[in-house]
Write a protein that binds this DNA or RNA. Structure first.
Length: 420
RNA sequence: GCGAGCGUAGCCAAGAGGCCUAAGGCGCCUGUCUGUGGCACAGGAGAUCACGGGUUCGAAUCCCGUCGCUCGCCCCA
C-alpha cells in the first residue's frame, strides 16, 4: 500500500471546516487593511531562496527541496513565502503602483524536516507583506493585523514577543559582543552552547539549559547596538503599539533564522505551550531584501502564520468552529420506479438553491431515514409509487418528527420562494 | 542530521511465546419494525497483528533491519 509521503498529510472533509474558518477570517481582515491576494508558483529558481533566506541558514543548507528539472534548470519547492512575493514585486514593476503595496497569500511551503506535532515537510501558510514603506507605523499595522487575526479566530491567552535586531551594520557588532560575553563565561556553558559559540552565537540566547538561561538575562542585547535610525524606529514602534493597546513583551532572546530580517522581528505564541513547535505566527522587517534580489532599495515587512499550527491550537483550546454547510434535503425513494423521479426531484431542489442528497434507493426506506439521521440532514423528501402517481411528495421534518404531503409543484414553489 | 518511545480492522483498544482460524467498544451494513430516523436488541462485513528478515517445534508477543507516528535536540509556521 502507498501512503502519503513522510511529513505530508491528507486534509479530509472533517478537517476542512478549520481551514475555511481560518481563511475566511484572514481574508476579511486582510481586505479591511487594503491587502490584495497574490498567488505565486509552488516552485522557483533555486537561486531566489539562496539569495534571500541566506546561504548559511538551516533552510538553505539542509531543508530545501531542490532538483534539476528536465530542461536542466535548478528549481526549489518554496520553503517560505516572502521571497517569491518580493520577486513578483520586482518582476511586475509594482514600484509603479501606489506605495506601499500590500499583499497577502495562502500557499503550501516545503521544508525537508524531521516531522513532529506541528511540524511537517509540507505545511501551509497565510502571510502578508507590505512593500515600499519603512515607517514604523506600518510595522505596527502589520503586527496589529496578526494580533487581531489570532483574536478573531478565538485564540486567547496568546503572547506577542517583540525585538529589534538592527541592520547589517549593527548586527555584527552585537554578535561580537555576544561572543566576547559568553567566552568570559565559557566554563558555565552547556556543551551545545560551547559549539554554538562560533557557529551561531545568537542561538545561545535561546538555550533552555538552566545556567545558559540565566547567563542570557545579562547578555548583550541587540537593542543596545542599534544605530540612531533603528533606535528611533524601535522607540516609535513601541509607542504605536502601546497606542493601539496591543500588549507585547520585549524579548531580547528573540532572533529569527532567516538572514533577511532587519530591525523589527516578532512572534506570536500560545500561552499554553504544547511541545517546542509553538510559534503560530512569525515575521519581521526586511529592508535589505529587495536589493539582495537585484531590485532598487525597497523596504518591506510581513509575517507568516502556519495553518496547521493554528488548527492545532483551535482544537486544543476547543474553539467552536462553524460547520461546513450541508444539504437541506435527502431525497428518499422507494421502489425501482421512483429512482428516476427522485433523481429529477433532487436536481430541482438544488436548482432552487437548497442542496439535496439523492439517497440510495437500493435500501429500504428505513435505511434511507437512518442515512438522513446519521448525516444530520434536517428534512427528507419521500417519493414512492403512491406519491408519484398522485404528483405528490412527502416532506418529513427530521427535527420535529412531523411530516406533510404536498403537491410536487407546491413544494418546489415554496422552495424557490424562500431559498435557504 | 542526532537521541528516546511507540505501531493490533476506518477510530479507540485487550493481548506479555502455544488456550489467537486475535477480545471488547465506537463507526459501517442488515434485521426485529412488509413505506419512516434517533433508543434497544440480534446478526453481518471489515485485520496478511506497519513491512521485511531472524530465533523457536511454535511469534501479535523475543531479536535485527526498514518505514511511519510521537517526544526532545536543531530549526521554524
Amino acid at each position: 500500500m502507498f501512503q502519503a509521503p513522510r511529513g505530508t498529510a491528507d486534509r479530509l472533509p472533517a478537517e476542512q471546516k478549520y481551514w475555511r474558518y481560518i481563511e475566511s477570517k484572514a481574508v476579511a481582515l486582510a481586505q479591511s487593511y487594503g491587502f490584495g491576494r497574490i498567488d505565486s508558483p509552488v516552485f522557483e529558481d533555486a537561486g531566489l531562496f539562496v539569495r534571500s533566506v541566506g546561504e548559511g541558514t538551516d533552510i538553505v543548507e539542509k531543508e530545501m527541496y531542490t532538483f534539476e528539472d528536465r530542461g536542466g534548470d535548478l528549481v526549489t519547492l518554496r520553503p517560505e513565502g516572502t521571497a517569491p512575493v518580493c520577486r513578483a514585486y520586482l518582476e511586475h514593476g509594482m514600484h509603479n503602483l501606489p506605495q506601499p503595496v500590500r499583499l497577502y497569500y495562502f500557499c503550501p511551503v516545503f521544508r525537508y524536516e524531521r516531522p513532529q506535532a506541528g511540524r511537517f515537510r509540507q505545511h501551509h501558510q497565510f502571510g502578508v507583506e507590505v512593500l515600499g514603506d519603512a515607517n514604523p507605523a506600518v510595522d505596527a499595522e502589520v503586527i496589529e493585523l496578526a494580533w487581531r487575526l489570532m483574536h478573531s479566530l478565538g485564540l486567547t491567552g496568546i503572547r506577542l514577543l517583540l525585538n529589534s535586531i538592527g541592520d547589517r551594520e549593527s548586527r555584527p557588532q552585537h554578535v561580537a559582543a555576544l561572543q566576547a560575553y559568553y567566552s568570559d563565561h565559557y566554563a558555565s556553558l552547556c556543551s551545545d552552547c560551547r559549539n554554538r559559540l562560533e557557529r551561531n552565537p545568537l542561538r545561545l540566547l535561546d538555550c533552555k539549559a538552566e545556567t545558559c538561561r540565566s547567563l542570557g538575562d545579562a547578555a548583550p542585547r541587540s537593542v543596545d547596538y542599534l544605530d540612531p535610525d533603528s533606535r528611533e524606529h524601535w522607540d516609535q514602534l513601541r509607542e504605536y503599539l502601546a497606542a493601539l493597546a496591543i500588549p507585547f513583551q520585549v524579548d531580547h532572546r528573540l532572533v529569527r533564522g532567516l538572514d533577511y530580517y532587519s530591525r523589527t522581528v516578532f512572534e506570536i505564541q500560545p500561552a499554553v505551550e504544547g511541545g517546542a513547535q509553538s510559534t503560530i505566527c512569525g515575521g519581521g522587517r526586511y529592508d535589505g531584501l529587495m536589493e539582495q534580489l537585484g531590485g532598487r532599495p525597497t523596504p518591506g515587512i510581513g509575517f507568516g502564520s502556519g495553518l496547521e499550527r493554528l488548527t492545532l491550537n483551535l482544537k486544543r483550546s476547543e474553539v467552536a468552529v462553524p460547520e461546513e454547510p450541508s444539504p437541506q434535503y435527502l431525497v428518499a425513494n422507494v421502489g425501482e420506479a421512483a429512482r428516476g423521479p427522485a433523481l429529477e426531484l433532487a436536481s430541482r431542489i438544488r436548482r432552487a438553491g437548497a442542496g439535496a442528497i439523492l439517497s440510495s434507493g437500493a435500501r429500504a426506506l428505513r435505511g434511507q431515514m437512518r442515512q438522513a439521521n446519521a448525516l444530520g440532514i434536517p428534512a427528507v423528501a419521500i417519493l414512492g409509487d403512491d406519491e408519484i402517481s398522485r404528483g405528490e411528495v412527502v416532506i418529513r421534518d427530521m427535527l420535529t418528527s412531523t411530516q406533510e404531503t404536498l403537491a410536487l409543484s407546491d413544494f418546489l414553489e415554496k422552495l424557490t420562494a424562500s431559498p435557504e
